[in-house]
């Protein structure tokens, strides 16, 4: 079972050195224990472009698809047997990166 873990932030480029170090330690653990599938940090939402080619011509829009106070600053994909395991990891991960996390299952 795979889960998408979104890192929720209300600032951009806000990671401190301590947080980065803690995330590295956490990532190593994820890899060693076989949960790690993918991880990545994202640039600021203002750097996003929305593309809509559902009609005749592609329309590009500058900025994220939804403007909100909080945004997704990064993500993980984990392989975990069930939600309890994913929530336990997320509890640890939230502490490591000092941010809220959203856990959402893939189909």
């Amino acid at each position: 079972m795979q889960y998408l873990i979104s890192v929720i932030d209300d600032r951009t480029n806000s990671g401190t050195e301590e947080e980065m170090a803690a995330i590295d330690v956490f990532n190593e653990k994820l890899q060693k224990q076989g949960y790690w599938v993918f991880a990545g940090g994202l640039a600021a939402p203002s750097s996003a472009t929305v593309i809509d080619n559902r009609n005749d011509a592609a329309v590009f829009t500058d900025g994220p698809f939804v403007e909100s106070k909080e945004h997704i600053a990064g993500l993980w994909i984990w392989e975990a047997p069930d939600l309890d395991v994913a929530l336990k990891l997320a509890t640890e991960g939230s502490k490591a990166c000092n941010r809220k996390l959203e856990v959402r299952p893939f189909h």
């Binding site: 079972m1 889960y3 047997p81 069930d82 939600l83 309890d84 336990k88 856990v103 959402r104 299952p105 189909h107």
Partner: peptide
């Protein structure tokens, strides 16, 4: 079902 909430009694520590 979708998030696979387990059907079991939690481990002693939890």
């Amino acid at each position: 079902k979708a998030a696979r909430i387990p059907y079991r009694v939690p481990a002693a520590e939890d």
